[in-house]
């Protein structure tokens, strides 16, 4: 638990009233983001992202799995969120389970809603086999606003994930899958539809984007919205008493900022790959 004295909280509230935050940012500004992809050689795709003081590592493993419950998805996504004990003592023990469950659920719900992988080329044997993408997320350092960092890192990891080509051989009603061993026979995933979360904390009467850990401690409410590149809402997480009128104002900001954020992330990944 990050501790904040009443005096500090009062100063923080007053500063936010003037439209600035304690590190000089405006109310709807993100902290500097640093990004690196391809950091885990054993994973099909990986990325490491730093948002202020929060640092997150994501690895994606690609497997072939059996289709579950007569679903029509080409791809099954499995998210696992873990927080390394060195990041914070909060995340040891039982509290950690409910915290990571919530984050996993939010990611799953957002990706499912956005229908990210409905590409026909990803379908294997409908009704029998499908791709299974295991996304493992490890939070290395907590500096506030883990949701955004995790969603950004997940999207960039998936955008650089290599999926091997598979030849399907059908013989007498049973299927055999031959996965191409050739390391060059891979395709990258298209993740234009993948959403990212934007988190606001409600401090006093103001919403601030990308709260630092101090701001989260002083907040009386929180709103996390997952948007895709078109500005459609894929998931909402809220906490605390939020003013209904403020919400519509926020949503326009969310749509605009979300688009810029996704562009910048994609650019950075592209520049990294070309250099």
């Amino acid at each position: 638990m990050y501790a904040v004295s009443k005096a500090e909280k009062a100063y923080l509230l007053d500063t936010i009233e003037t439209g600035t935050r304690l590190d000089g940012r405006q109310l709807f500004e993100y902290r500097p983001i640093s990004l690196q992809v391809g950091v885990l050689p054993s994973a099909s795709g990986s990325s490491r992202l730093r948002l202020g003081e929060t640092e997150v590592l994501v690895g994606v493993k690609v497997e072939v799995g059996d289709v579950v419950e007569s679903s029509n998805d080409n791809v099954q996504l499995l998210f696992t969120v873990e927080c390394s004990g060195s990041a914070s003592a909060d995340f040891l023990g039982r509290e950690a389970e409910s915290w990571s469950s919530e984050l996993q659920n939010a990611l799953e719900s957002a990706y499912r809603a956005a229908n990210v992988f409905d590409d026909e080329r990803l379908s294997l044997v409908p009704g029998k086999f499908c791709w299974l993408f295991k996304v493992d997320i490890l939070v290395l350092d907590t500096g506030g606003n883990m949701m955004d960092a995790i969603s950004m890192a997940t999207r960039t990891a998936l955008s650089t994930t290599l999926v091997p080509r598979v030849h399907i051989v059908q013989s007498e009603g049973s299927f055999e899958l031959e996965i191409d061993d050739n390391p060059d026979a891979c395709d990258t995933l298209k993740v234009e539809k993948a959403p990212t979360f934007l988190t606001f904390s409600l401090i006093g009467n103001h919403f601030v984007l990308d709260p630092s850990i101090q701001e989260e401690t002083c907040a009386r409410g929180k709103l996390s919205v997952a948007v895709d590149a078109n500005g459609d809402i894929c998931h909402v997480y809220s906490f605390g008493l939020l003013d209904a009128v403020e919400l519509s104002r926020l949503l326009t900001i969310i749509k605009k900022t979300g688009k810029v954020l996704l562009n910048r992330l994609d650019e950075c990944v592209k520049n990294g790959e070309s250099s």
Binding site: I33, K256, R264, G272
Partner: peptide, 16 residues
């Protein structure tokens, strides 16, 4: 104008 400067993404090598 704020949008242009409100988000800054850079590769890790540039870090301090």
């Amino acid at each position: 104008k704020d949008d242009d400067t409100s988000i800054f993404v850079s590769p890790f090598e540039q870090e301090a």
